[in-house]
Write a protein that binds this DNA or RNA. Structure first.
Lengths: 149, 149
DNA sequence: TAATCAGTTAGAATGAGTCTAATCCGCAAG
DNA sequence: CTTGCGGATTAGACTCATTCTAACTGATTA
């Protein structure tokens, strides 16, 4: 079920949007709520359908717009795997993604700072990177108690 | 300019295809030649146009087919960045990719075994991965004498 | 009240990639 | 030879995620 945002989360939303000179709208709040309610890396379409349950008039274009806005102000991350639909992830801590061949599900894998550092160290001089994407592809033993919030 | 394959490369092609029960065709040879001639991670479309110069009747569908076949038998790797067109890379050694924001160009970054190992070590028990994709995104100081072959 | 402006909306347009059905080609059997 | 077979190739239609466009909404300002 999709609950309302906690005060804390609403503040987080408001602050991040505000910093980029944008405002909180009901649509943005609904989309953000959906993202936090079920952290299973939904596609735009999944977000759309979930958000519609709460706000029936919401349009797909708006969902695209909201998600783009969130990415722009650092509220969520995009996750791409091969050429599949883009997925969205509100986990902002440094982490890698693991895509389960069997189920298609995406799992977050914690990324210790020293591993991230050793990874960055392979860049030759002159290469300056702000983003590193790491994605594993394979099989995970299912022991999956759905990672909602 | 697109030269013919060396005997060594032609053997490589023949062997890899043969192992998966497929044969060398003029189209496959042309596409493979194009990939080796200019290792700049071309898109399908780029491969298509380059190969057409050598084999004017070649169709786009065939280029897709050839590349898929090559990926299937381990002759080349796919490189995906965000949702851009898939690119192809005949470098089979373990390496990461660096995508230059400014030029859109993709560079290979050598990946030392110990870094790869430390990366794999972050997978929790139960997660088994055969493929890891690492891609950096940022700016590279241009000192680029075209990486052909 | 009117003007403005960001945000939202529906639907059209785009474009990478896939699918389909027809054709081609090399080769083995007759 | 010539026939038949199967994989490869081809052109073009199709799919579908994403982007674009132009009209509309609603809050805020003049």
């Amino acid at each position: 079920m999709i609950q309302n945002l906690t005060d804390h989360d609403r503040e987080h939303l408001q602050e991040a949007l505000g910093k980029s000179g944008q405002k909180v709208t009901p649509q943005r709040e609904a989309v953000f709520t959906v993202l936090l309610a079920q952290r299973d890396h939904p596609t735009v379409d999944e977000v759309f359908h979930r958000a519609r349950e709460v706000m029936p008039g919401l349009s797909l274009a708006t969902v695209y717009n909201c998600l783009e806005t969130f990415v722009g102000c650092g509220l969520v991350r995009q996750v791409n795997h091969e050429r599949e639909s883009t997925r969205y992830c509100p986990n902002l801590t440094p982490h890698a993604h693991f895509r389960d061949k069997a189920t298609g599900r995406v799992h977050d894998i914690e990324l210790p700072p020293e591993v991230l550092k050793s990874l960055r160290s392979i860049l030759p001089p002159g290469f300056d990177s702000d983003v590193v994407e790491i994605s594993f592809h394979g099989r995970a033993q299912a022991k999956d108690s759905d990672p909602s919030n």
